[in-house]
Nucleic acid binder design. Structure first.
Lengths: 231, 231
DNA sequence: TCCATATCGATAAAACCTTATCGAAACTCC
DNA sequence: GGAGTTTCGATAAGGTTTTATCGATATGGA
């Protein structure tokens, strides 16, 4: 069951790796601007607060190759990451829900650098419909389905109130959406071929708060009881 | 080396679990409103698109106990999650950077429900300083350090431009911040006792896009190269 | 030229998270 | 009241991600 040598199926890259690649990309871009030709895992790891071995494995996953004692060629590695992450091929995306969060996303300048193009936003508020925000038109929500279909939009950003989340999702799915970036605190029910990436802000904040509490207890135990620093 | 029975050290709960707990919480609240007294893992799992065994393990981590054939007591389980996640004890938070994203976070109504209270925002734009947004004052950035110290603020939301990220972080750390919720696409350098939760939106979107690409290749390979209805 | 050192690639070990299995408890229906 | 079924809790198996180890290679300096 080993992959045949010329099996072109991209080996699935672990999600944690995918999330780190943009950091490497950004840092290596900085190195390019500093006119460095090579960059080593050690340097990357130190700068980003990561483990050097992990960095090496991550870069390996992109297909980048390095040279012992020298490191990775800056240009070649940037290319490898771009190629791997698909920063080249521009994707058109729809934003659904032009509330505060939606507007913040519309205004976000960074998308284009990574090959994303938010072409339009949709909202049900008549006061917003017909206007523009950050140069993007805000369209009537009822047109969403039709436009997803006709423009073959594959990715949608869901930034509507939680109460509307599933309804809008159903619309999107029926219109043929392939992936949803979900900013609502709702678990969406979708057919298994539709991808959902949850961005649950409250959950993240809760995690942070809980970890903080843990660390507080731990350090309290360490510092108070004197020696038994653990167990 | 089993923990002694009355060891009160909270067993560190896995981060994936922490991220799922808010979903359980929300759903079980719904069950309470529907006047149900018990809820089972099976029900939860089905509603949220998760694995029942996983739900059970997650709930076990909170200390909630269930009864075979009956399920978990709604009230008791809500309490357990609240207790575990610290929804009871209100945390005061500062927001740094009142741009589009910062404003969206300021306007977000959900924080208070989970025990968070954004007390003020900070920005360096004189046009914003002195105004209010969503009832929260926007203060001069130079006062950040002093107020973090005096008010014993432990958590800060970082929503400044990437260029300012590390500088502001250093200020926060010196002022004694304990945790940073980082919305900039930068890996922050902090002492190890300071917690950072990264919320790298571009990274998440990249992941989604890459997974979409993978699934496309896969399904293309599987489903005969029949009739390409698109592309 | 040769040695010391930094770094890569590959493979192995460890840690962590998810999924499976199984016995026991408790409810329902006969 | 007993059989059947659902569901829990505990433990084990499986998978994935992180960290470690080790030989090989390239560079710089003696």
């Amino acid at each position: 069951m080993s992959p045949s040598p010329n099996d072109l199926t991209p080996v699935a890259i672990p999600e944690p790796t995918l999330k780190r690649l943009p950091y490497y990309y950004k840092f290596i871009q900085g190195q390019r601007e500093a006119r460095r030709e090579f960059v080593s895992c050690t340097t990357l790891a130190e700068a980003l607060g990561l483990n050097a071995i992990q960095v090496r494995k991550d870069l390996q996953a992109t297909g980048a190759v390095g040279r012992p004692k020298v490191g990775y060629h800056v240009e070649a590695t940037l290319d490898a990451i771009e190629e791997c992450m698909g920063y080249h091929n521009t994707q058109d995306i729809f934003l659904v829900g032009a509330g505060h969060l939606g507007q913040a996303l519309l205004a976000y300048p960074g998308f284009s650098e990574f090959g994303f193009n938010v072409v339009a936003a949709f909202d049900s508020d008549p006061a917003k419909v017909g206007t523009e925000f950050a140069g993007k038109p805000i369209l009537e929500a009822s047109r969403l389905s039709d436009l997803v279909r006709r423009m073959h939009i594959q990715i949608a950003i869901l930034a509507v109130p939680a109460t509307a989340a599933q309804t809008v999702t159903d619309t999107l799915v029926q219109a043929g959406i392939r992936a949803i970036w979900n900013f609502t605190p709702t678990r969406l029910a979708v057919p298994k071929e539709v991808l959902v990436q949850d961005e649950n802000l409250l959950a993240s904040l809760s995690v942070l708060s809980k970890q903080l509490e843990n660390s507080r207890v731990k350090s309290h135990k360490e510092s108070t009881h004197g020696k038994p620093e653990e167990l």
